[in-house]
Design a protein around this nucleic acid. Structure first.
Length: 200
DNA sequence: GTCAAGATTAGT
DNA sequence: CTAATCTTGACG
């Protein structure tokens, strides 16, 4: 019996994620991120994210080439990359670009839209502004763990198109948060005046 | 083998 | 401002 080790083709609905991360990141705002992790549905609109430009970006985990941890970053756009931050928090990215480029977009905040009670239980708070505002809080609220690194969108995590087209007019850029290199790039993208964005 | 740094968060 | 907490990646 030969096993079919070739992965199933990525859902064509996610093909647009193979574009450059700097093009994808602003467009990602307003999309709804849906999680079925743990057999429970939770979801929220993406209101803040940051682009990491692969091999050319000193602030990117992919800067020094693929490693065991960062291997998913070098898959084609539409994959998921999750890592452990400061030994405590997990952060999730959506991989973009072509295979081999190492691009990814860190999801920093969502505005909860479904499964609020589940999120509240996981997070230990009911304040909707504090459920998933921050990369570590977002993964905790959605039940996203390291085991999802290397999976693809369409399996446990899904994207649904923006419900409000008006969001695109509210996109703001600025320097990325929490890094020490390549500080000058305005590669953080968020929705102006949205109360769920992690920092002002 | 050893060690410094880190895409964060909660609490003082 | 700092502690918590631990993996990665660089160096030898």
């Amino acid at each position: 019996m030969s096993r079919m080790d070739r992965p199933a083709p990525l859902d064509p609905a996610y093909d647009w994620l193979t574009a450059d991360c700097l093009d994808v990141a602003p467009k990602l705002l307003g999309w709804e991120l849906v999680s079925h992790a743990g057999g429970l549905e939770t979801a929220g609109r993406i209101v803040e994210c940051e682009a990491y430009h692969g091999l050319e970006d000193p602030a990117s985990h992919a800067f020094r080439g693929p490693t065991k941890r960062t291997a998913p970053m070098f898959e084609a756009g539409g994959h998921v990359y999750v890592y452990l931050s400061y030994g405590i928090h997990t952060c999730m990215n959506i991989v973009t670009g072509q295979a081999g480029e190492g691009q990814a977009i860190l999801l920093r905040a969502i505005e909860p839209t479904a499964g609020l009670e589940v999120m509240a239980r996981r997070r230990g708070t009911t304040d909707p502004r504090n459920l998933a505002s921050g990369p570590g809080k977002l993964t905790q609220a959605l039940g996203v763990g390291l085991e999802l690194s290397g999976t693809r969108l369409g399996e446990t995590l899904f994207l649904r198109p923006p419900s409000d087209p008006h969001d695109q007019a509210l996109v703001v850029t600025g320097p990325r948060v929490g890094i020490t290199r390549a500080l000058h790039h305005p590669w953080r993208f968020y929705l102006r005046n949205n109360p769920h964005v992690s920092r002002r």
